[in-house]
Amino acid sequence: MEGIVVKGIQKNFGKKTVLQDVDLQIKPGKIYGLLGRNGAGKSTLLSIIANRIFPNMGTITLDGQTVFENDKALGQMYLMSERNLYSKSSKLKHLLGTTELLYGNFDYEYAYQLAEKFSLDLNQKFGKLSTGYRSIFKLIVSLCVPAKYILLDEPVLGLDANHRELFYREMVDNYVKTGKTFVISTHLIEEITNSLEHIFIIKNGQIIIDGDVEDVLNKAYLVSGPAKEVAQYTAGLNVIGQEKLGNIQGDYVFGKLDSERVLPDTVTVEKPNLQKLFINLTNTKEENK
C-alpha cells in the first residue's frame, strides 16, 4: 500500500496504555492534522512512526515496507519533535551540513532565505537558542530536507503570532511547490484548520475521527433553542456536547440528524467550526457537566 500505514499500534508506558489499536493511513501529497489534547498520545504515535521508540504491538509500513530499522524508509521521513535531538554545542550551520550529509540534497538556498525571514543567525549554537528559535530552526530544516513525509509535532511551540503566520505561509507554499506530505500534530487547531485536508482526532490513545476536514464538518451540527425542544429533537442522536445558558440549550450532534423529525420553529440547526467540534469531541465527561 502506498504511503505510511499504521496498523494495530499499541503502546504502554509501564501499566499505562498510551495508544490502543491505532490504525491509520497517511497517503502521499496531502496535509494531515493529528489533533488531540495534551497527553492524548500524539507525540508517542509520531515517535513510533519515525521508529524512535518501539510499540508493544502493531506495525508501521512505508510503501509496503516496514519502517522498523529501515534506513530507506526512515530517510523518507523527517520528524520534528518537541524534544531536541540536536546537540546543544553544535552550530546551526553545521547541523544543516549534517542533515545534508545524511539525507542528501538539502535545499541550502531556501534554508538561508528562511533563516533571514525568521531573522535567525545560523552561526549560533543550538543550545543558545530560545524555545521559539529552536522550533524555528527545526522548522527550517523540516522545510528544506528532501524527505517526502514531514511529521511536525507541535510545530509552533513558542512562536509568536508573526512567526506562526510566516510558518503557515511557508509550509503551504512549500507544499504546493514540492508536493510533500505534511502531518501536523497540534492542539492549536483554529490557526491550522484551513490548511488541513484530512484530520485524525486522537483521544485517550485512540483515533476517534479519521476523515477529510469537509466530510467531518459535514457530519457536525449545532442544534440550539429552548432546552425542552432541543432535547426532544436530539433524543437518541449522537450528542457529543452541550452548551447551556439558562433555558437555552445547544446540543452538538455528530453524525446524521433524523430527517423524519419535525424541526420546531424555535430550534435552529447550524454547522459548528472545527475548533468547536474538536473541543466537544475531546471533552471528558467530567468537563461536560
Binding site: R52, N70, L74, Y78, Y103
Partner: peptide, 13 residues
C-alpha cells in the same frame, strides 16, 4: 544516536 535517528538513520547502521 539522537542526532542520527533525527536524520533517519537506523540503529543497525
Amino acid at each position: 544516536f539522537k542526532l542520527l535517528i533525527q536524520n533517519g538513520v537506523s540503529r543497525y547502521t
